[in-house]
Amino acid sequence: MQMSSLSRYVNRTSQFLRDATAKVMLMYGADEPSRAPKTLFTFNTAEEVAQIVKGSDADIGGFSTVNFELEESPEINASIGRPATGKLWGEMRLGVKPALKGKIRAGYAGFRNQFRTTLFGEMCHDVSMHNYLALRVRVAGDPRTRHSYFVNIQTDTPVSTDLWQHRLYFHKADNSWEDLFIPFDSFILTNSGGLYDNRIEMFKKRIRSVGISVLGGNSCLEGHYELGVDSIRIVNEEDVIRPQPAGVQHQHQSPVSH
């Protein structure tokens, strides 16, 4: 284990102990848990960007590329008062290596946060007191790819390949920032492209990871994709900001994983 990774591991273990001690000292559970907005992840420093895992179909023989890096352009970040933000970008491709034609499906790329292991187990996020996932994002790149983004949530369940998914519906198309609010009860449980019984509820007490993917293979689209990501938060109805003018409301569509 490299020194930087070891340092993060030790820090997470210390945080785990501090949180556990605080819950005991404050008689955690005696008072109602907070419903205040909470930030899960920000992407404003090199250290924060280093905490993500990225991947694409190139991992199994495709040709899509994926990058996640800091965007430090003042023209892009000034409107939200950030010196830097995260940027997911690359080329979406549908082809695969000749020997793999007909055997794998290409056309996907994305990122998620790293799993946070400690000496005493894995740290997860408890979002059970919040009803919405809130993302501050900006969409750019080839317009053809802008309808292929999904947000993915993995919970602490025995089936590690289960993913809760929801399509991202953008209100802006001018490379400017916007806040998207997605109800947790609108996510659809998927596994390897299949949909589960929608009566299953998300295990919101232990969220392992949150990420975003672009699935060009779903709609047979290729091209340059780019998505700016500033933060991922959890909020409740009173914190939701509705776009003005409201325009046409999109209905939720069931996602299809790669």
Rank of each mutant, 00 (worst) to 15 (best):
residue 190 T to E: 07
residue 178 E to H: 06
residue 111 F to D: 00
residue 77 N to A: 04
residue 63 F to K: 12
residue 92 M to P: 02
residue 72 E to C: 06
residue 155 T to N: 12
residue 96 V to P: 00
residue 139 V to D: 02
residue 129 M to S: 15
residue 154 Q to F: 06
residue 181 F to S: 10
residue 164 W to H: 02
residue 162 D to P: 10
residue 69 E to M: 04
residue 159 V to D: 12
residue 159 V to G: 03
residue 120 F to V: 03
residue 157 T to S: 15
residue 51 Q to D: 02
residue 132 Y to R: 08
residue 165 Q to V: 08
residue 62 G to A: 03
residue 179 D to R: 14
residue 148 S to Y: 03
residue 132 Y to H: 11
residue 91 E to W: 07
residue 136 R to K: 04
residue 140 A to H: 05
residue 137 V to E: 06
residue 57 D to H: 12
residue 109 A to M: 10
residue 60 I to F: 13
residue 107 G to R: 08
residue 138 R to C: 07
residue 66 V to L: 05
residue 181 F to Q: 00
residue 170 F to K: 01
residue 141 G to P: 00
residue 124 C to S: 14
residue 58 A to W: 11
residue 169 Y to M: 04
residue 107 G to V: 08
residue 134 A to K: 15
residue 165 Q to S: 12
residue 138 R to N: 00
residue 170 F to N: 02
residue 101 K to C: 07
residue 115 F to A: 13
residue 142 D to M: 04
residue 128 S to A: 05
residue 177 W to M: 02
residue 173 A to R: 07
residue 93 R to T: 08
residue 54 K to Y: 09
residue 70 L to W: 03
residue 119 L to E: 11
residue 92 M to E: 13
residue 64 S to T: 07
residue 96 V to W: 02
residue 120 F to T: 02
residue 155 T to F: 08
residue 146 R to W: 00
residue 118 T to E: 04
residue 178 E to V: 00
residue 70 L to H: 01
residue 163 L to N: 14
residue 87 K to M: 12
residue 132 Y to G: 08
residue 63 F to V: 11
residue 89 W to M: 09
residue 58 A to K: 14
residue 66 V to I: 11
residue 68 F to E: 00
residue 117 T to L: 14
residue 60 I to C: 11
residue 125 H to V: 15
residue 116 R to E: 10
residue 56 S to K: 04
residue 97 K to N: 07
residue 162 D to C: 10
residue 76 I to L: 10
residue 153 I to W: 06
residue 62 G to W: 02
residue 73 S to P: 04
residue 75 E to H: 12
residue 158 P to W: 09
residue 137 V to I: 14
residue 85 T to R: 03
residue 131 N to M: 11
residue 157 T to L: 15
residue 160 S to R: 15
residue 189 L to V: 05
residue 146 R to E: 00
residue 153 I to H: 04
residue 98 P to E: 07
residue 171 H to K: 01
residue 97 K to V: 13
residue 140 A to C: 12
residue 189 L to E: 06
